[in-house]
Amino acid sequence: MHAHRGGQHTGPGVGDADRFQQSLDLSVLSPQAVQAQQRVRVGLDNSARPADCPGSGNQIPAAQAWNTMWELRRLTAVFRAGRRTLVQDRELVRTGGMLSVVLAWLAHDLGDTDAAQAFATDARHHDLAAESGILCAWADDVAATVHLYGDRPKHAAECAARGLAAAPPGTAAHVRLAAQSARAHARAGHSDQFADNRRLAEQLAGALPLHASGLFSADQVRVLSFEATSYLALSRPRQALTAAEQAVAQYRRGPHLSPTRAVIAHLDLAAAHASLGDYEAAIEAGTRALDAPRPADAITRRARDLASSLNSTTAPSSARDFAARLTT
């Protein structure tokens, strides 16, 4: 029993508790806004880097994907600026942060380093409100990659370690950050730290599928591909060759759910052959990479690196001619 006298609450009552509970689920967004929010969620669920869309026929230009994801991100910010319930607010915070991760990857694919880092930072700030840890993990995953391609391996290792600590155990992000940490330490020349993180990544990858699609995913082949890149950085071409051959074989047999990683695996295979002086095999692997679309800045940079190794004074003229093709 309870009563209200003169606007004052005079005692406890079940009805009050019920009303407070119902207010959490009471939507204050208009039906149109709720429908738009659902479209944002669907867009996020279907998001992938343009280079990672399944099948060469589904390659989405990075600029087009940017426009789509930017509009979804803008809508999320508009919703947060209006009235909403606690449940809606937490969902909007999480969605906004994940969309910023997508935009960070797209900016990286477009070669805009500053924008990529800015959106990764935005995603991390959203994690402070969402209190999930997963946003920080994915944000640090892309930040580490941007630092790697910017030739800042120590910064990449710091981001990867921070993301690995934030990632919930057993998630795709946890595996990705372990492999990312190994790759970053290899680029920094930290062989011991590389070995420790490589073992962790391989152990965690055992529970993953061989191939997976989507931006927020991880698979065993990606870990193999990261190992090939890492061994090249550590000047261990024979181990790089073994890892790259295994990755390429899986990508050729698989459903090609990650065309970008498949192309990079071929470029790593070519680089390993070139390091061992087998230029004909390097040209063959590099030719396969050339035959695939190259929508990502990361692929363009890898192709330039391969061209540099093929332009060695000891390389035959055929290798130097092929190097010219890689940079056009």
Rank of each mutant, 00 (worst) to 15 (best):
A118R: 05
S100D: 06
G170Q: 07
V142Y: 01
A289F: 03
W138C: 03
R302M: 03
T313G: 00
K154F: 09
Q59Y: 13
V28S: 14
Q239K: 10
A249F: 02
A156F: 10
G111T: 05
A161G: 14
I299S: 03
W66G: 00
T300D: 00
D141P: 01
D219N: 10
R301M: 06
S275R: 10
H155R: 14
T113N: 00
L24S: 12
E91N: 08
A36S: 12
E158H: 11
R288G: 12
N67G: 10
L204M: 14
R84Y: 14
M69V: 03
G133Y: 01
G163N: 06
L110M: 08
G82T: 14
R176H: 10
G206R: 11
G133R: 05
G13N: 14
A3L: 13
D127H: 02
F216N: 05
V93Q: 07
V42F: 07
S235Y: 02
R294G: 07
L241Q: 09
Q193K: 15
L215P: 06
E227G: 13
H4I: 15
A289V: 02
D112H: 02
G82P: 09
L210N: 03
L290K: 02
A116L: 01
R236F: 04
V101Q: 05
T260E: 10
L215A: 04
A218E: 12
D192C: 13
R49G: 05
A249W: 06
N58S: 15
A265Y: 06
L234M: 12
L103M: 07
A265R: 02
M98H: 08
Q180L: 11
A240Y: 07
L269H: 08
N46E: 14
S217L: 06
A324I: 11
R183A: 08
D297G: 00
L26Y: 15
L210A: 04
A265F: 09
N311C: 01
A81T: 13
L257E: 11
L86W: 12
N311T: 09
L92V: 04
H2T: 15
G15A: 15
Q239Y: 07
T113W: 00
I299C: 06
